[in-house]
Design a protein around this nucleic acid. Structure first.
Lengths: 233, 233
DNA sequence: CGCGAGCTTGACGTTGTTCAACTAGAGTGG
DNA sequence: CCACTCTAGTTGAACAACGTCAAGCTCGCG
């Protein structure tokens, strides 16, 4: 984790957080947020938010991919979802609870802007348009988690892996051919199965001509067949 | 589903929705909400909100138990969570999307108050304290879903059933002995397994003296052992 | 060159699903 | 009052899915 030099205030004009979330706040208020914020850079594997910690900052990720992961008492990990930038993280429970339900970890080189939660909260209390904007933003990835939740609950590993591949291709890497920034172990934590099962499933898909894998490079060859596997579980 | 006579306005003084959610709105505004609302009674099995429908109303359940269930394209059901009253339903995506991600179904005799979403939304846009209150309320059950999600993802059926029994006993029926308002089929949709598996697991717990079951009556005899099964999955 | 992390494969036992048969209780109509 | 039927619950056996373990592979890096 590296503390970056804060970009000059007028650089923020191009920032989606400024453009979208702060659409309805005054320049003066934005200046306040700017002053309370820190710019950070994370390497792959570094925790951006740590499960169980009190949160003092809301995170706006401007670059890179992150995973939302939950660790149980035996150190077993589960990935709730993977998201790209820009995104508002720290999420759904910002105004509800004061500890992180799960960790947010970089799976890529990431840059993020940490904004003091109290400054933002006070602003939202005076500005309902901002409050609703924050609500919209912080819940978008909740939908993704629910989709994965449903997939886990009543599909076999074939269907779950198909779901994950489609999700990564469409929503995260935005291409049929992508360089995976997750390990096989992490994929297994996403699909809720063993690493070996992931590997076997991927190589089965490869043999059947549905995808083409070369360790980190994955190309989806037959999307309609993948969608069918997803449907039939 | 039966349309009830609307209780007189001053009955609402005792209503938790009025007391908690509407703490910061004027009598005048509350009158507006009151006028846009409908009182309904539901029998077991009746849909309160239907997955895929546009939502026009937010639901405040005042009495009874409900399940949040998701139906996939092959008619296979999954119960995301079960909650008691009073509760704000229709939930997390109220301001994000305009269709229900899942159904809400009565598993008991239920009474609910349906409030016009546009009236409430406009009010929240002018009143940020209300907006934040709504956010808090509508996200509380999201936490429960996540807990179940995690349980499903890396526990075997034994652990999941233990989780569900503890959850129902502590959060829903609020007693070690309760009359189950879910069928075995519904329990299996909650645990993400087959009905037979639920039955076998329950009778195994019964034989081991952990619980005592007589079809609909369930008593938890050895909670610490149940908690242990939950932990070791 | 050798080490280690991540990846891959196959064998084997466990867990869970499916199917078919059976039981118990509630409701219905002669 | 007794079939009849319908629904929910239960049991066991056969079979498929999945996890675990052990062994070996590959590639990047010191």
């Amino acid at each position: 984790m590296i503390l970056l030099d804060k970009p000059p205030l007028n650089d923020c004009e191009h920032c989606p957080f400024k453009q979208l979330v702060c659409e309805y706040i005054s320049e003066e208020d934005f200046q306040l947020l700017y002053n309370s914020s820190v710019q950070l850079k994370f390497r792959r594997g570094e925790n951006i938010l740590k499960q169980g910690n009190r949160f003092t900052h809301i995170v706006f990720s401007s670059k890179g991919y992150v995973k939302l992961n939950y660790e149980n008492e035996f150190g077993k990990n589960l990935i709730l979802t993977v998201v790209d930038s820009p995104r508002l993280l720290g999420g759904i429970n910002v105004f509800n609870d004061d500890t992180n339900m799960f960790s947010v970890t970089a799976i890529d080189e990431c840059e993020a802007c940490l904004i003091d939660i109290n400054v933002l909260k006070n602003m939202a209390l005076k500005n309902s348009a901002l409050a609703l904007r924050l609500l919209e933003f912080s819940t978008s990835m909740f939908r993704d988690s629910i989709i994965n939740f449903i997939s886990l609950a009543h599909k076999h590993v074939n269907g779950r892996v198909a779901d994950i591949l489609i999700y990564l291709s469409e929503k995260i890497y935005k291409s049929n051919k992508f360089i995976l920034t997750l390990t096989r172990k992490e994929l297994s934590e996403f699909a809720g199965c063993s690493q070996e099962n992931i590997i076997n499933t991927l190589s089965r898909f490869h043999k059947d001509g549905i995808i083409c894998t070369n360790v980190k490079i994955i190309e989806i060859l037959d999307k309609s067949r993948l969608a069918e596997i997803s449907r039939f579980g």
